[in-house]
Design a protein around this nucleic acid. Structure first.
Lengths: 111, 111
DNA sequence: TTTGTTCATCGGCAATATACGATTAACCAA
DNA sequence: TTGGTTAATCGTATATTGCCGATGAACAAA
């Protein structure tokens, strides 16, 4: 995410929405989240069976979701369990609700 | 958005969420949407006065939002009015509500 | 027609994202 | 200790993104 040289400052919410959106910006990550949200839990190994991508690639996508705080992992050697990070999930939900809930209601004379 | 060689197919919703998320994945675009949604009505390229970026850069960001269907433009020579695309905005809202509304409620044995 | 205004698009550069195979790290079991 | 299993990380190639200045297109006004 390249930034301009000029000092452009964003609010925490703006940054948060952008950060979470980046995590959701690839359909396979949306798919993974759906799988994790549906099932109680999941191993990485099971995902490799469900998603036709290299194991390393899936691991990268999981890392992206981890970095965004949308999921969490728990080591259960030699496997790793991944699941939705409920707290952050709720925060993200509220964040997007607030964002999409704003404006666009009072019409626009472009129509 | 590079795709795997293997035939990975996604649902319409998954693709839509990824597409809209890509549009929201940069804080300046979130800011622009807030500005457009916040002001009573349409906005023009006075955005260049509010955002310390080159005019061409802002135009590119507007195009990204246009392509995602989140905003719409109306030519009013020599200016262009932009505003939230209310219809698509509502669809996006419902899409994300449905997405964030799923799962994460029935707990997870990772905790 | 000429000039001025506004916005989109082009070209170029640097940074990031995505994919893969290969390797490494961690751990259990024999 | 040795071997097997699982997942993260490394290295690399390619595609995309983001920024800018410069140019082009469209149109109103003089």
């Amino acid at each position: 995410m390249q930034r301009t040289l000029s000092s452009m400052e964003y609010t925490v919410d703006e940054e948060s929405i952008a950060l979470i959106s980046r995590a959701l910006a690839h359909p396979v990550r949306v798919r993974i989240l759906k799988l994790l949200a549906g099932e109680t839990c999941c191993f990485t190994g099971e995902l490799t069976g469900l998603i036709p991508m290299a194991q390393s690639t899936i691991s990268q996508h999981l890392k992206a979701l981890l970095d965004a705080g949308l999921i969490q992992g728990q080591i259960d050697p030699p496997k790793v369990k991944y699941c939705i990070n409920a707290d952050h999930w709720l925060l993200a939900q509220e964040l997007f609700m607030g964002f999409f809930g704003q404006g666009a209601a009072d019409g626009c004379d472009c129509d």
